[in-house]
Amino acid sequence: MPDVLIAEDDPAALHLTLKALSIVNSRIRPHIARNGAEALAFLRRQAPYTGAPKPDLIVLDWNLPKVHGREVPAVTRSTDAIRDIPIVVVTTSDAEKDREEAAHLGVNEYVVKAPHFRDFVASVRDFTERYLGTEQDEE
């Protein structure tokens, strides 16, 4: 079962992302970080995440409180044990400077959330299949 770390502070946005993930792959095991600091603690297996698995994918909101989303790829790409985890930024902002910064920091994909849910689900299906394979692949 693929472990996916979702770093998202907005509860309603998190609900939609979890729903989309459950639609595209019912075997995904989601782990939630409500801010950048929690995401980094999870990845570093710091308390209360000492038993946390290494995620197969990180789904990251860019504008996170406490520690900004940019710190997640910065830390991940500079830490040997977790360097290879794919990171997908999922955000409403299509700011060119955010895209450029994300690419520079080693983010694999930058996905702008579509206004229609079915389009959002399609984009989530697209990147989960790319980084996790299909449900059939896992069987």
């Binding site: 907005d10 946005a13 299509d94 959330k113 206004p115």
Partner: peptide, 14 residues
């Protein structure tokens, strides 16, 4: 774009 767009996306999606 971001701060108005996200709640609006949520209204439409839900």
């Amino acid at each position: 774009s971001h701060d108005l767009g996200e709640p609006l996306r949520q209204v439409i999606s839900f």
